[in-house]
């Protein structure tokens, strides 16, 4: 059995063949950015960062990370309306990512804990997290830059 692949054109990574199961449909796009079809790209299974790459725009890609790699006590709370809108029912089946703002130095890297991206069954939604203490720009490496230098 052959795995179906889709060709992705990327200004960052060139032409990439991605397996069909890496495709994520966003019915309402990313907030303020739009886009309906993306693919999740990772260098390898253990990558700290993965890329959410548009299948429609070669320039459009955002690095994501698993928030619990950096924020042990991170929580996502959805309003009833939003949970109903996106149809999330099983937290076990839902992958949670946060967008990453990369920067020149590690200490300026941040993640958006306010608007995580939930992916289940090939469908993705960027949602507003109602949990307290979920800033849009949470430093990823605060206090660890000396260790990284």
């Amino acid at each position: 059995m052959t795995t179906e692949t889709i060709t992705l054109e990327s200004s960052r990574f060139g032409t990439v063949e991605v397996p069909a199961e890496a495709v994520v449909e966003f019915p309402t796009g990313l907030i303020g950015l739009g886009g309906r079809r993306y693919a999740l790209l990772a260098r390898n299974e253990e990558s700290t960062f993965v890329w959410l790459h548009s299948l429609e725009d070669p320039e459009l890609a955002l690095p994501l990370t698993n928030p619990w790699q950096f924020f042990n006590s991170y929580e996502v709370e959805l309003s009833d309306d939003e949970a109903d809108r996106i149809g999330v029912s099983d937290a076990e089946e839902t992958a949670v990512y946060v967008t990453v703002r990369a920067a020149e130095t590690l200490e300026d890297f941040s993640a958006n804990l306010r608007a995580p991206i939930l992916i289940a069954n090939g469908h993705g939604h960027q949602v507003i997290n109602q949990a307290p203490d979920a800033p849009v720009r949470a430093p990823l490496f605060a206090g660890t830059t000396e260790a990284a230098a």
């Binding site: 990313l30 907030i31 303020g32 950015l33 459009l60 890609a61 955002l62 690095p63 967008t99 990453v100 703002r101 990369a102 958006n112 306010r114 608007a115 960027q126 507003i128 849009v136 720009r137």
Partner: peptide, 11 residues
């Protein structure tokens, strides 16, 4: 969130 998404997309 739009601004953070735009900034992330410049990574």
């Amino acid at each position: 969130v739009r601004d953070e998404n735009a900034a992330a997309a410049k990574s």
